[in-house]
Design a protein around this nucleic acid. Structure first.
Length: 548
RNA sequence: GGUCCCGUAGCUCAGGUGGAUAGAGCACAAGUUUCCUAAACUUGGUGCCGCAGGUUCGAAUCCUGCCGGGAUCACCA
């Protein structure tokens, strides 16, 4: 935003100097405020092609620009050849006015051009409850979807699940065993690789309540009932847990429909037709070795069942066929190995892999008193996402899961999360919003009028005001960057910086009761800040309480 | 062994396309409120940026090799 103000001037200056080629140079905000509001490395970039000293080039540029714009107060040469630019306060006044006009639309952008985006996340099979890692996946996916929505994309939130196959059999047999143990005692054998979670007992209990002892025989029909019961029980709770974090997906895509609708068959036929698959040892193999990967892999087992790769590939193809132009897949680090296979196959099928964006997030560990927590103290069972939501609430869970870059291992500090005080970073943000609400309320009571597009923003000259405006000016860049990087952490970090500038401003500058014009300008400023904070919190999926 | 992620302050982590004196939160210490919410603000300091080379005016950032931690490498999903 700031750079826009000066870049034209610089480009004109270069033309004046007879430099018409494009060179790579940047404007940036110096870390050290003594270096001005903006600085550019242009002179250093030109030193080599022009065969002159950076300082001399810088001086030439400065001579060209100086005095030509009332937006620039001063230009100086510093360090190895930087040009430091001191902007006139007018730049900030213009900027905050522009932001103020956006009102509640302030975090919205439209660079998405209605691109059809599919964000797939959570996607756990209905065999149990959600845990912390799933929580990270869910919050990431949901927030990425929010970001894309706010930037003008046409977003579909999707959940892909599989309620067939080995794991579901396993679930069914586990429920059956618990059911039988209930009737015949603890000696009834439990399947070796069964699901040991306590929740299986709950499911068995429900089955028992509903059917009594009628399902004692290990028949396919009865096992199928167990499976259904387990699936429904799990899905109900998964959805409920997600809803507690305000996560509601649009499409629940069942892997099974790929079979029912012949998508798997079609794909197999296509692979065969293209000579990409072959039979060996009764299995069907895909020639990944011809797609740039090292080894061929089985896609249909000798038993006739496909491996996970086949439906995964078919599913991606299906998403493209449904018209999506960008596929974002949110996976945990344990899925890392499947991605190259899918990508290679998708590419070979003629789709643009640039349009597939796998987001692999690292694991989460829950820490308490410096030690890893695996079991819930209260229940003695393994720690679920619901347990965490019970303890600290959705806002804290979401923020903690989002405040770190997805590709670093995340330590969830339970002690800090439990802290209902200023130590908790979530409250720091929400408090800024609540403070502004309160000020606005008081201002209205005192008879201040709020809707003033003609507010005299040029009166905002206190360093704390300028710093706050300066931070607010970054909002578009941040939202865009967070979206393109699929990195909510960028926004979370920005929000903290913005809240910090706000709190400093609040401390230094009174709003109500100062000179009328200044009061109007400051009210307009804090309302703008409030919109940014509130919208950012919304994008992150957090609430913005008006009072705290 | 191959592939991916990570290694930055006591701890947890940031570090837009390479830039000037590497930052924040927490923890620790001291202070600020007759005045719009003190869940706030102010002050205090610590870094072989894992190691070693390379690229260049300039590297925490890019390249190569190594070391350490995590994940993953099925006719399991």
């Amino acid at each position: 935003m700031k750079a826009k103000v000066v870049s034209d001037l610089f480009e004109k200056a270069l033309v004046q100097m007879g430099i018409n080629d494009k060179y790579d140079f940047v404007f940036e905000t110096p870390k050290n405020p003594e270096h001005g509001d903006l600085s550019t490395n242009i002179a250093m970039r030109l030193a080599k092609p022009m065969k002159k000293k950076p300082a001399d080039i810088a001086q030439e540029i400065i001579d060209q620009i100086k005095g030509k714009s009332d937006l620039i107060e001063d230009l100086t040469i510093a360090g190895p050849g930087f040009i430091n630019i001191k902007l006139s306060p007018k730049v900030y006044a213009n900027a905050i006015k522009e932001l103020y006009k956006k009102g509640e639309n302030i975090c919205r952008q439209d660079f998405g051009n209605k691109l059809k985006v599919n964000v797939e996340y959570v996607s756990v099979n209905p065999t149990g409850l959600l845990h912390l890692g799933h929580g990270r996946n869910a919050c990431l996916g949901d927030t990425i979807a929010n970001l894309y929505e706010w930037t003008g994309h046409d977003v579909t939130r999707e959940y892909y699940f599989n309620n067939a196959g080995n794991q579901m059999n396993n679930l069914a047999q586990s429920v059956y065993a618990r059911y039988m143990q209930k009737i015949e005692g603890e000696d009834f054998p439990f399947p070796e690789n069964g699901y040991h979670g306590e929740y299986i007992k709950e499911i068995a209990e429900e089955v028992h309540q509903q059917h009594g002892e009628a399902l004692k025989e290990n028949t396919p029909e009865n096992i199928n009932l167990m499976r259904k019961a387990g699936e429904e029980w799990s899905f109900k709770r998964i959805k409920a847990t997600l809803a507690r974090m305000s996560i509601n997906q649009d499409v629940f895509y069942n892997e099974d429909s790929l079979y029912k609708e012949g998508k798997i068959k079609n794909l197999l036929a296509l692979f065969e037709e293209k000579g990409l698959s072959y039979k060996k040892d009764d299995a069907t193999w895909l020639r990944f070795s011809e797609m740039g990967l090292s080894d061929d892999r089985v896609i249909v087992k000798s038993t006739g069942e496909p491996t996970y790769r086949l439906p995964d590939i078919a599913y991606h193809r299906e998403k493209f066929e449904r018209g999506f132009e960008l596929l974002i897949d949110v996976f945990g680090a344990d899925h890392i190995a499947t991605i190259p296979d899918v990508m290679a196959a998708v590419k070979y099928l003629g789709y643009d892999t640039e349009r597939v964006r796998p987001i692999i997030h690292q694991f989460v560990t829950l820490m308490e008193n410096g030690e890893q927590v695996k079991m819930s103290k209260r229940t003695g069972k393994s720690y679920t996402l619901d347990d965490l939501l019970d303890e600290v609430g959705s806002d804290v869970v979401r923020f903690f899961l989002l405040m770190r870059s997805f590709n670093t291992h995340l330590e969830f500090d339970l002690d800090l999360a439990r802290e209902q005080s200023e130590k908790n970073p979530v409250f720091y943000l929400q408090y800024a919003n609540a403070r502004i609400s309160s000020v606005i309320e008081n201002a209205i009571e005192a008879g201040a009028k709020l809707d003033d597009e003609n507010a005299k923003f040029e009166l905002l000259t206190h360093p704390s005001e300028l710093n706050l405006i300066n931070e607010a000016m970054n909002v578009d860049r941040i939202i865009k960057s967070a979206t393109q990087k699929c990195e909510p952490q960028v926004l979370a970090d920005y929000l903290r910086a913005l809240a910090s500038e706000f709190h400093k401003f609040y401390h230094d500058c009174r709003i109500i009761g100062v000179d009328a014009d200044l009061q109007t300008a400051r009210l307009a400023l804090v309302r703008t800040i409030k919109h940014i904070i509130k919208n950012s919190l919304t994008i992150l999926g957090l609430s913005s309480p008006e009072r705290m």
